[in-house]
Structure formats: C-alpha cells, structure tokens
Write a protein that binds this DNA or RNA. Structure first.
Length: 468
RNA sequence: GGCGACGUGGUGAAGUGGCUCAACACGGAGGUCUGCAAAACCUCUACUCACCGGUUCGAAUCCGGUCGUCGCCUCCA
C-alpha cells in the first residue's frame, strides 16, 4: 500500500517516498494578505490540508509550512489607499485569513512564515545567485534572474521560453532588464515604497524569491511536496525551481501538486475579474462552514469545480445524512449480542477509504466508502440486528476517517440545562400522549437549533447548522 | 497562435480493456414504518458514457479525427 500523487513536473503519478523516511516535508503557497481570501483560494489551502491530514492519518510525520506574502505591489497600493502602514494592513488581513481558515477547519500549518521576516534569507540567496552568475543588477538597484542561464526553464509549465508572449505588460521599474523574460529577485528602492537596507543595497524582495528562501529555511534545500493552485505553475513555481536549483545545485522539490481552479458561473474565480465569493461573506450570509468545506473537498483536487448555491445545498443535505447517521449510532441501545459480521464491515470500509485516498487523494471514492457504511449501519439499526457496542464501533470508525475529512460536527457538547429540561418535558408529554404539547416543544427546540426526532426508543436530538 | 486539462443520468461525480457496462451524493416518483413530523429502509429514476471512425474475442476505458468547455502563456490559490 503506497500513497501515489500526481506530480506536475513529470506529469505522472509517483509513489510518495519521503527524503527522510517517515517524515514528509510540505510547503504550500499561502495567501497574499492585501485583502480577504475567497473560497477559490481556500480550495488550494484545503486540498493541502486534506493531504496533510491523510498523511498523518497514515502514520507519517508531517512538517507543513504555508507562507504568507506580506509585502508586494498590491499590499503597498492597499496601504496607501487606506493610509495604513504596510505592517498594519498585513496584520489585519492575516488575522482575517486565520479566522477564515479556522472557520473552515483548516489544520494549522506548523510554520506560517512571513516574507518580511525572512529578508536575510532572501538576501543570502540572491547573493549566491549573483555570485554564480545567474543574476544581474540593473541601474535602479533591482536584481533580475537571468533565464538564459537556466536551460531547464519552462519544464514545469511545459512552455518554450522562446515562445513566451512577452512585452505586453512590462512594468516601469523593470526597464533595463537584459531580457524581458527575466524576473525580479530584488526590486530597487522607490521613494514611496518600503525598503530594506541590506548588503544588496536598499530595496525589497520580489515575489518568487520569498518562497524559495522560506521553504529552504524551514524545510531544507530539498523537500518532498510543494502545493499551490494551477495558476502558480507559471511563472511562480517555474521561477522558484530556476532560482532555487541554480543556487543550490540540487533538486528543489520532489513532487509538485497543483489543484484546479474553483469556478463560479463557469468562469475561474478571481479577484481581478470580480468573480469571487469571500469566505466571511458566505458565512455571514448563513452558508454553513462545514458545507463550504465539503464543497471544496468533495471533488478531486485536479478536477475543475464550479461553486454555486446548488452545490452548497447538495453538500448540506449530504452532511445532514452523515450527521443523522452518527447521531443514530450514538443513541442506539440494544441488548442484542455482538454481530460477527460487523468486524468485516469495518475493515472493508477502512480498506476502501484508504485505497481511494492512496490513489492521488481520490476523495470522491473515499466519501463513497463512508456513505456505503452509513447505509449499511442504518439498515442494521433499523433491523436492530447489532449490539450497542457494534454501533459504537461503527461510529468510532466514521469519526476516525473523518479525522482526514473534517466534516462531521464537533463532538457533541453536553446539552444546555434549559434545553435538556425542554427535552425532558417533551418526554413526559409524550408518555402522557399529549401530542399538541409535544409538537409545541419540538418547534421550540427547533427554533433553538435542536432537531428532535422520535424513534421507537424515544427521542433523539442533534444540533442543526443554524443553531451553531 | 503555443501548451495543457476535460466532456459519464435531472445535477455533482467515481470508474481508464471483461470481475453488477456504470459507485457515491443531491434531486424526483412510489412504498414501509410512524399520533403527526422527521429520519431511516425498500423499489424505480443513464441498455448508456460529446460525436465519428479504428484496434480488440471484448472499450466509457486504447488509437485517430471532429465538435465543445475551461485554464496557462509573467496580477493570480
């Protein structure tokens, strides 16, 4: 049983063989904090989350680094517009990012390095590139990577450097490049821009170099997995490979993983076109966080995915089925003896789930395994053919597998005393066949976020999304 | 123009040569259970996998072509 992942560079599925056995090092391109992230951004973050969770579930040690770009043109522009400091603006949006990530139950990365905290590493890397002749300085103090010095350039994106359509948008500060395709490692100082005083001279880092510097700082010159959205393949990751390998002379990343775009109305979700939905706005509009997570996760990461209200509704309904099944398993009590076939059911489910996820994170097939066991459990619950312990074992399995997905409700907190009292009153009313009173109490509980269902064993309750 | 991904039912989507040639979820129809409701369970809901041609004893799955959708080609998760 090996985990296989689709590497963008080779274009093939390759078995995961960590450089250090048992320890996987992962770097994910995180947010640029000039504003709130949208759900499309979170698709790429959550697919990395899924990967990290699954590898840990499989018993591997994982070190997960996700960078935060806290200095770039947009942040500078945004700060100017808000008359805020760069740092203040970045901090504000980092907080928002962390809040969104937490709402969507993203695992906390082990390290969230910020570009502005790694200026030294960036400068050292650029110095190596200068010394090795892969970079050159121009008049305004900017330093560029010389693409012609790196024959491999274009391999990741499968682009022929000779055929790049260039020159359509050459920025003012980038005149003086030897070749328009060369990219900035260091941007020379400007009067109205932040600048660091370094051995390279004053200026600020370019975008691509920060990821090379920070990933190497926290994971080493060579590490196992680098993730991001497909739109980062070129130029961002292409440039990372060139500058990193040119500097170290060693293989930068073993496996490149890229997730497909989230679409909305058939078009790529992107801030630049205005076609996007922010996480916080959706949550504010009452879209359940778990449903957003389910939508973003339930489709294979390399498959395009369209976000719509309909997909959220379907996700909510699917989650409801899962919630109900787990609540029913928890509430089940029977003096029936253990069912000898339950062990096989559990083993089969786990095997199917793992086979699916091993295959390049085939989460759809993994979910199918879970829904299969849900149906089977419901059947046996209805037939009352299993023991209380069997039900608990099935619930425990589902919760265990959910450690990878993170879509089940949080462990049920004890019911608030007043709500518990209402449920008790309803129990009494039902015992006395006071149906009107019973229905009234059911409505009241529903209004307070508790769904009550009657079974032949009495009432069963669970929290509804609206009540969270 | 160059490069790449993809096209499976009402919807999302798994499946990449034959073991149920079509999982799983949503939606829809009918039924069982039930004070009612909800949930659950049962049955039905693609003789067919964009289209055309080919390879093969056999293809949704391989090859070629056509049509269509989306993305990347230095803002971008």
């Amino acid at each position: 049983m090996t985990i296989r992942l689709h590497d963008t560079l080779s274009g093939e599925l390759q078995p995961l063989e960590p450089l250090e056995p048992g320890h996987v090092r992962i770097y994910s391109c995180g947010p640029t904090v000039y504003g709130p992230a949208h759900v499309g951004n979170f698709r790429s973050f959550l697919f990395a989350d899924l990967l990290v969770r699954y590898l840990r579930y499989r018993g591997l040690r994982v070190t997960w680094v996700m960078n935060i770009t806290d200095i770039d043109d947009k942040i500078i522009r945004g700060a100017r517009a808000d008359r805020a400091s760069i740092e203040g603006l970045a901090n504000r949006w980092i907080e928002r990012f962390l809040a969104d990530a937490s709402a969507l139950r993203m695992t906390s990365p082990d390290v969230l390095p910020r570009a502005t905290r790694h200026i030294n590493e960036i400068v050292l890397l650029i110095e190596v590139l200068l010394a090795k002749g892969h970079a050159y300085r121009v008049e305004d103090g900017s330093i560029f990577f010389r693409i012609s010095s790196w024959p491999e350039y274009g391999r990741l994106a499968r682009l022929d450097p000779e055929n790049l359509r260039v020159g359509e948008r050459v920025e003012a500060d980038e005149y003086g490049k030897d070749d328009v395709r060369d990219f900035a490692l260091w941007k020379g100082p400007k009067a109205d821009e932040p600048s660091w005083t370094t051995s390279l001279g004053p200026g600020r880092p370019g975008w691509h170099i920060e990821c090379s510097a920070m990933s190497m700082r926290h994971l080493g010159e060579s590490f196992d997995i680098h993730t991001g959205g497909v739109d980062l393949v070129f130029p961002h990751h292409e440039d990372e490979i060139a500058q990193s390998e040119a500097a170290t002379g060693t293989r930068f990343v073993r496996t490149w993983l890229h997730c497909a775009h989230l679409r909305m109305g058939g078009e790529k979700m992107a801030k630049s076109t205005g076609n996007f939905a922010r996480v916080a706005d959706l949550l504010g509009a009452g879209v359940p966080a778990r449903a957003i997570r389910y939508v973003l996760l339930a489709v294979h990461y390399r498959q395009g995915l369209d976000y719509s209200e309909a997909t959220v509704e379907a996700a909510t309904a699917a989650l409801d089925r899962l919630d109900t099944a787990v609540a029913a398993l928890d509430a089940y009590e029977s003096d029936h003896g253990d069912d000898a076939t339950v062990g096989g059911l559990l083993d089969g489910t786990r095997a199917a789930f793992e086979t699916a996820l091993d295959d390049d994170l085939n989460v759809s097939a993994g979910l199918a395994a879970i829904f299969d066991v849900v149906r089977e459990a419901n059947r046996r619950l209805a037939a009352r053919s299993i023991s209380t312990g069997d039900a608990a074992r099935i619930a425990a399995l589902i919760r265990d597998l959910d450690g990878v997905l993170g879509i089940l409700p949080d462990a049920a907190e004890a019911l608030e005393p007043d709500l518990a009292a209402l449920i008790e009153q309803r129990r009494t009313a039902r015992a006395n066949r006071e149906w009107a009173r019973s229905d009234e109490l059911r409505d009241e509980l529903a209004g307070r976020g508790i769904t009550v269902e009657d079974t032949r064993d009495g009432q069963r309750w669970r929290r509804t999304e609206a009540g969270r």
